[in-house]
Structures are given as structure tokens and as C-alpha cells.
Amino acid sequence: MIPAAFDYTRPSTVDEAVAALAAGGEDAKVLAGGQSLIPVLRLRLAAPTVLVDLGGVGDLRGVRDDGDALVIGATTRHADLVRDPLVAEHAPLLAQAAAMVGDRQVRHLGTLGGSLSHADPAGDLPGVAVALDASFEIAGPGGRRTVGAGEFFVDFLTTALAPDEVLVSVRVPKLPGWTTHYEKFTRVAQAWAICGVAAAVRRENGSIAEARVALTNMGATPLRAGGVEQALAGASATVDAVASAAGRAAEGTDPPSDVFASAEYRGHLVTVLTKRAVLAAGGIG
């Protein structure tokens, strides 16, 4: 199908982008990589009056070291995350998950900020952002503010972004002493996750001192598996201990039932993937 008619603007600064969104009102949309927006436009599931293309805002791209964290521009491509040496060194979980997004063509066009702002619960990167305790810098008419990943994802396809705000960057804390892994199950290659698990583990003296586990597609937003994290804290770094903790992965979740999997199946699958992810992250087995 052909999209409905719209106006198009390509600002060169963040302030210009915010002003364009404010002028366009609730019917304005941000265009980053377009991998989520363009299909929706073609199907006329959305009909914005204005598209604000962020491709000309150079300040929104790239990865930089900021002491105890990495700061990643919102329009940084997935493919850039996969091959960036700073991400590989300090946030390998993000690079691993970005390598699983769509296919090669999608990864060379899609952006980190676009994926996070779209907030599809089956997307790979929102759960990773939650597991890494990332925070988001947002620019709007009233200035800039910072929102943690746990508060950024509000509901299905809904974030804390106001219609006249732009996601500027993602701050990812470095996690020295932690090891990570992302486990994903799909119906076919290059598809959305039926279920996914992002795990980060810190070991001390043969035990798991601390763990973070975030779940993909187990509710309307990415979720922290609090029961698993509680069970793993101080547990021995053994297969049996991890398997026991993983059995709590579905607690407090509300997975969807759709043509790809039932809620019951996802509830079982998440325990399997959680065990795999934590074992791989912790080098256990």
C-alpha cells in the first residue's frame, strides 16, 4: 500500500527536531532508521501529518566512553553496536543482542533509539537495556531529563517519551567483574523473539554474588525476573542451583497468547531460556 500524504522535515540539531515535533503536535512522528515506522505507514496503521527525520542530526550518532559508563547516541545503528570496540569491551550483552535483531539489512538501517522508543515487548534491545540498568537522556521543549530503563517502558508500544520529546542518548553503565549472555528463541531465523532472556552475573569465591535477569515478550514491557535474581543471590555456582532459580522465571509475568505460542508455552520456555542464559553468563556447567 501507499502511505497517506505527510509533510517531511530534516532538522540538523536536537533543538530543531524538538521544535519540529512541538509544531507538529501529536500527529508528528520521528523517523530514525524507519524499520518499524515505514511498514506501519505503508499499511496505513499510522497516518502522521509530519515526519521529523533525525538522520541529519550528527550529535545523535556514535559511542563514547564517559568514565564509568558508555554513552550511545540514539541513532547509532545496530550494525555499529555489533562491531564497536567500546561496546564489545564494556557492554558485550548489547552487542550480542544487536547482532540478533532482524537481518543484515535491518541491522544496517535500524537504530538503538528507534528500537527502544518503539518499545515492542518482543524486541531484543529493551530487555537488554533493563538488564544493564541503562538510563535514557530525553530532550523536550522544557530542556533535558534522564529516565531509567525501568521507568522508560510504560506499556505495550508506549514509553515515557512525550509527543514533543526526542530520545538523545542511552547511558550504559560499565559492569566490571560481571559476565553476560542473551538467549532468544524464535519461530524462524530473523523473527521477533517468542521469548528472550538477558542475564548478567557477578561471581565471587565459587558463588553467584549477584545476578540480573530481564525477560523479553513475557508481558507488555520488558520485565526483571525478581524471583530468579533473589534465588541466585549468594547461591552456589552450580547447574542445580541455577536450574532451581530459573524455575521462578515466570513469576509475576503476563505473557501473551498469539499465533506463535500460548501463554503457557511461553511460561515454560522462559524457565528453559533463563537457565541457559544464566549458565552461559556465569560460565557454569
Rank of each mutant, 00 (worst) to 15 (best):
I2L: 15
D7G: 15
Y8Q: 05
P11R: 10
E16Q: 15
L21T: 09
L21E: 09
G25K: 05
D27G: 14
L37Q: 00
I38L: 15
L51A: 03
V52A: 05
G55T: 00
G56Y: 06
V57L: 10
D59C: 06
R61C: 09
G62T: 07
G62W: 02
R64E: 15
D66I: 02
A69E: 10
A69N: 00
G73E: 12
D80N: 10
A91K: 07
Q96C: 05
A98L: 06
V106A: 13
V106W: 04
S115Q: 04
P121D: 07
A129M: 15
A131W: 05
L132Q: 12
T146G: 05
V147Y: 14
E151M: 12
F156C: 08
V166Y: 08
V168I: 06
V170A: 08
V172A: 07
P176C: 04
W178S: 00
W178A: 05
T180C: 11
H181D: 08
Y182S: 02
R187M: 12
I194M: 08
A199L: 02
R203E: 07
E204Y: 09
G206M: 05
A209R: 15
V213T: 07
V213Q: 05
L215A: 09
T216K: 07
M218Y: 02
T221P: 03
Q230L: 14
Q230G: 11
L232N: 06
A235V: 12
A237P: 00
A243N: 03
D254W: 02
P256T: 01
S257H: 03
V259Y: 09
S262V: 07
A263E: 13
Y265Q: 01
L269T: 06
T271M: 14
V272D: 14
R276V: 04
A280K: 15
